[in-house]
Structure formats: structure tokens, C-alpha cells
Computed example of a mutant assay.
Amino acid sequence: MSVMQFRHFAAGLALGLLTLGAVQPALADDDDRRIAITGRAEVTAVPDRADVTLGVDAEGKTAAAAMAENARRMSAVFEALTAAGVAREKIGTTGLSLQPVYDYPHQQGRNGPPRLVGFRASNMVQVRVTEMDRVGKVLDATVEAGANTIHGISFSVSEADRLLDTARAEAVADARRKAEIYAKAAGVRLGKVLRIDEARGGGPQPVYRAMAMASEAMRADTPVAPGEQTLGISVSVLWELED
């Protein structure tokens, strides 16, 4: 057999094998006997903690004067927080800065380089309030004492882990319910669980609602509505399938 004839023979043999493989049924592997289903569950709860970030910005002709004025106002804020019933361990410094303040003539239609006119000192603290009906009162007290910056307020649930455990069990039950529907429709049964993967649903989601005011005195405070938080869990469960 010549080299050319051998090449034609080999090419024909390969084509025949490919054709034979195309018409033969594929052998079942382990993945054909498994089913993966995602289950979801949510629980809602009313927040019982509020974290408020607030502080004092103060300016002075010199850096020392700005820091001294800031310290005076911040001390008054700490005293107001204590008087409002906030324990010292619930107050933590989150930021302290000192920056120069410049006058920019071009912003006022004048010529000339920037000119140093003073300094600004900033002191920020995070305050945790665990009595939700006192959040507005605490805010008002700090502002009256000298706080002139409020960077935000966030609410949280102290028993979030316990509530999420309930959601985990419900999410697995949801996955099993759906998996049993598919298995029954396919004429098979669920076997043992092979794997469970959890995914948090992006963190607590607030669901806002109006906060009831119990008295005229409460209406005088800054209104704050903690609403409800939705805690979500998703789980992916992998089962074996049995005949």
C-alpha cells in the first residue's frame, strides 16, 4: 500500500468512527442522576438598635484654635449623650481631622492665588441607641449641645442570627418542596442530599412604616421611623435521584 493509499484509508476509518459515535447513545454519568434546586425564605423584624454617626465641625484662625473650639463643643455633645441615657461604651470615635481652609478669589470673580484663612477641625462619633423611642430625643439633644454634622443613621436587629436560622430551615424546606414536584413529574424519587450552598440575599432590607407617636412630648422630637427589616436567605440543595 502506497503512502497516499494509507492516508486515504486512515481518513475513511476516522470518518467511519465519528459517524458510528454520533448514532450511539451517550452513556449516563453521575450528573444525570442528580437535581439541584434553590430554595428561598425571608423573615421580617422590627429593628431594636440604631447607629447614628454625628459630630462637630469647628473653625478657627489657627489650627490650635480650631481644635480647641471643636473639643469644647464635642465635650458638650458627650455630656448631652450621657444625660440622654446613652452609655459611654455605646459611643465610639470614627473620625478626627484637621484641614486648612482657603479663600479662592477666582470663585468670587477676583484675581489672585488662594489665601489661607483658617483651619477646620472635625470630630465624628458613632452612637448606638437601644431604646428606639429615644432616638429622636438623642438627636435633638446632641444638636442643641453643639453637634452640627449628622452623617446618617442605620437600624439593625440584635437577634438577626436567630431569625436567619429560622429562614435557613424554611429555605431548605422550600427547596425540597420544589425538588419533590420535579422528581414526581419525572417518575423518580429524591435520594440523599449531596450538597447545600447558602447565599445571603444582599443583607437586611428595610421596609418602611410609620412609627406611632404615643404622646405630644414624643411628637416634639425629631421623627425617626425604624420600619421593619427583611432578612433573606437562599440555599442551593443537590440531591441524588432514585428510581
Rank of each mutant, 00 (worst) to 15 (best):
residue 212 A to G: 03
residue 164 L to N: 10
residue 83 A to Y: 00
residue 178 K to A: 12
residue 71 A to D: 15
residue 14 A to C: 06
residue 79 E to I: 00
residue 151 H to G: 12
residue 73 R to P: 03
residue 127 V to F: 03
residue 61 K to L: 13
residue 146 G to R: 02
residue 197 D to N: 13
residue 187 G to D: 02
residue 234 S to M: 08
residue 182 Y to F: 14
residue 88 R to K: 15
residue 230 T to S: 15
residue 13 L to T: 13
residue 59 E to I: 02
residue 212 A to K: 07
residue 192 K to D: 13
residue 180 E to S: 12
residue 79 E to T: 13
residue 73 R to Q: 15
residue 160 A to L: 03
residue 88 R to S: 12
residue 189 R to S: 05
residue 123 N to L: 09
residue 74 M to F: 14
residue 144 E to N: 10
residue 178 K to G: 09
residue 7 R to W: 06
residue 166 T to M: 08
residue 209 R to G: 08
residue 137 K to E: 12
residue 23 V to I: 15
residue 224 V to K: 04
residue 134 R to N: 12
residue 234 S to P: 04
residue 174 D to Y: 13
residue 89 E to F: 11
residue 237 V to F: 09
residue 12 G to L: 14
residue 194 L to C: 07
residue 54 L to R: 04
residue 58 A to H: 00
residue 125 V to M: 13
residue 88 R to L: 09
residue 153 I to S: 03
residue 184 K to E: 14
residue 53 T to D: 11
residue 180 E to Q: 15
residue 85 G to K: 08
residue 42 E to V: 10
residue 106 H to F: 13
residue 173 A to C: 02
residue 233 I to S: 10
residue 222 T to D: 05
residue 126 Q to K: 14
residue 135 V to P: 02
residue 97 S to D: 15
residue 132 M to W: 05
residue 108 Q to V: 05
residue 38 T to P: 01
residue 190 L to P: 12
residue 67 M to Y: 01
residue 32 D to T: 14
residue 7 R to V: 13
residue 122 S to L: 10
residue 102 Y to G: 01
residue 77 V to N: 08
residue 224 V to C: 08
residue 199 A to C: 00
residue 170 E to C: 02
residue 150 I to G: 10
residue 176 R to M: 07
residue 62 T to K: 03
residue 226 P to Y: 09
residue 104 Y to S: 01
residue 188 V to M: 04
residue 48 D to F: 05
residue 25 P to G: 07
residue 99 Q to P: 00
residue 179 A to P: 08
residue 106 H to Y: 14
residue 222 T to V: 09
residue 193 V to G: 06
residue 158 S to W: 04
residue 242 E to K: 14
residue 30 D to R: 14
residue 93 T to E: 12
residue 141 A to H: 04
residue 32 D to R: 06
residue 7 R to C: 05
residue 26 A to R: 10
residue 86 V to R: 08
residue 1 M to D: 04
residue 32 D to H: 05
residue 90 K to R: 15
residue 12 G to N: 00
residue 18 L to R: 00
residue 5 Q to Y: 01
residue 34 R to K: 15
residue 36 A to W: 00
residue 237 V to E: 08
residue 117 V to F: 03
residue 4 M to W: 05
residue 43 V to W: 11
residue 183 A to K: 08
residue 26 A to K: 04
residue 22 A to M: 12
residue 200 R to Y: 04
residue 109 G to M: 05
residue 73 R to G: 04
residue 136 G to Y: 12
residue 205 Q to N: 12
residue 83 A to K: 15
residue 234 S to I: 00
residue 47 P to G: 03
residue 201 G to H: 01
residue 230 T to A: 15
residue 238 L to K: 12
residue 111 N to L: 11
residue 78 F to V: 04
residue 165 D to H: 02
residue 31 D to I: 02
residue 46 V to P: 01
residue 221 D to I: 01
residue 149 T to W: 00
residue 125 V to K: 04
residue 19 T to R: 02
residue 178 K to I: 06
residue 18 L to N: 02
